[in-house]
């Protein structure tokens, strides 16, 4: 069990987590056209709530302060984290989704992101402020008792399983009549409303589901790295997920998967090994983020549909009952 294998396994876990995130954003933006400019916040909320649900109640002499401390097993904690993220999504939707213009939602998301970040950072009693929480127990390892080198492969399996389930859900949603209605709202919400679709309700569904995805991804991450502080989910992270979706292909779940591999895993991880510039510790990270920002703009200019564009809907399950052709004009 070499360090290379360990490192590759880590990458696989990250890939799975980013795949979930990109699918979630695809449900919001790719399907429903919702501009969520603080997607990472929902991820963080999911992570924090999963973490504090799993951790034991903080003792008075502990140097960490946080809410809950329920000592719950992983599964219910993960669900709690997802629910918290979904609830925040619901609140944001309540404020912003009634308005038709996408700017409103974008403004509200940016503001919510700033407020939540500020709150978590400053308010030490929620999630231990700027120092963050640490020491979240490894999921299921109280029963498994595996050493870290073996446990990581268990975790690859765990995240892989969750990713598969959420992938199936994402694909089903996209192909379902629900997905079709969401796309109709994305294309022209007046038309969708004129055909009886309650556009507010449908957009809310997409908003909340996308946030649930983010929450679950967050829970999986904190189970893996067992600690999180505000430095781990800066606004910059949101852009990476956006870049992944736009590069891979918005409105295409395979594209989202490809993007999750290309941007957060291949690009961000590959640049991790660049040597640090002495005396300038953040230079590499800054350049990396500049490239991500440039990528967002460049993709929209050169290939706005992404590498794998949205595909036309097909209905292979409809068996043709009779030969068809267009009716001809009499005249």
């Amino acid at each position: 069990m070499g360090p290379i294998a360990y490192y590759l396994a880590t990458l696989v876990v990250y890939f799975f987590i980013f795949a979930i995130l990109t699918w979630g954003l695809n449900i919001q933006f790719g399907s429903a056209g919702i501009l969520n400019f603080t997607y990472i916040t929902f991820f963080a909320i999911g992570a924090y709530f999963t973490g504090v649900a799993m951790m034991a109640r903080p003792t008075t002499d502990s140097n960490m302060r946080y809410i809950l401390g329920l000592n719950w097993p992983f599964i219910p904690s993960l669900l709690l984290g997802a629910l918290a993220a979904g609830l925040l999504g619901l609140l944001v939707g309540l404020v912003a989704l009634r308005r038709l213009r996408s700017d409103y939602l974008a403004i509200v998301t940016v503001s919510v992101g700033a407020i939540v970040y500020d709150f978590v950072n400053v308010n030490t009693s929620a999630f231990n402020g700027g120092d963050g929480i640490a020491g979240v127990p490894y999921p299921f390892n109280d029963q498994l008792n595996l050493d870290p080198n073996t446990y990581i492969f268990f975790y690859v399996g765990l995240t892989g399983f969750v990713m598969l389930v959420l992938g199936v859900v994402a694909f089903r949603l996209y192909k379902s009549p629900l997905g079709r209605t969401l796309r109709a709202i994305r294309e022209d919400s007046d038309v969708a409303a004129a055909f009886g679709k309650d556009t507010y309700r449908f957009r809310m569904i997409a908003m909340v589901i996308g946030c649930l995805y983010a929450g679950i991804a967050g829970g999986l991450l904190i189970g893996f790295i067992s600690a999180l502080n505000p430095g781990g989910w800066t606004a910059g992270e949101t852009f990476i997920i956006w870049a992944a979706l736009l590069v891979g292909g918005r409105g295409n779940n395979w594209g989202a998967l490809l993007g999750a591999f290309l941007v957060p895993v291949l690009f961000v991880e590959a640049t991790r090994f660049l040597p640090e510039i002495p005396g300038h510790p953040v230079l590499i990270a800054a350049i990396r983020n500049m490239i991500v920002g440039g990528l967002l703009i460049g993709v929209l200019w050169f290939r706005p549909e992404g590498i794998l564009p949205e595909r036309k809907a097909r209905f292979p399950f409809v068996g043709s009952t009779q030969p068809r052709k267009d009716a001809q004009l009499d005249s």
Binding site: S176, R180, T181, A184, V191, A192, F195, K312
Partner: peptide, 18 residues
């Protein structure tokens, strides 16, 4: 951004699949 056939499938009311 949707096919002609998909355009036709949006309007039907009370779609269980929605």
């Amino acid at each position: 951004g949707m096919t002609v056939l998909e355009n036709m499938l949006v309007p039907p009311p009370d779609q269980a699949g929605e």
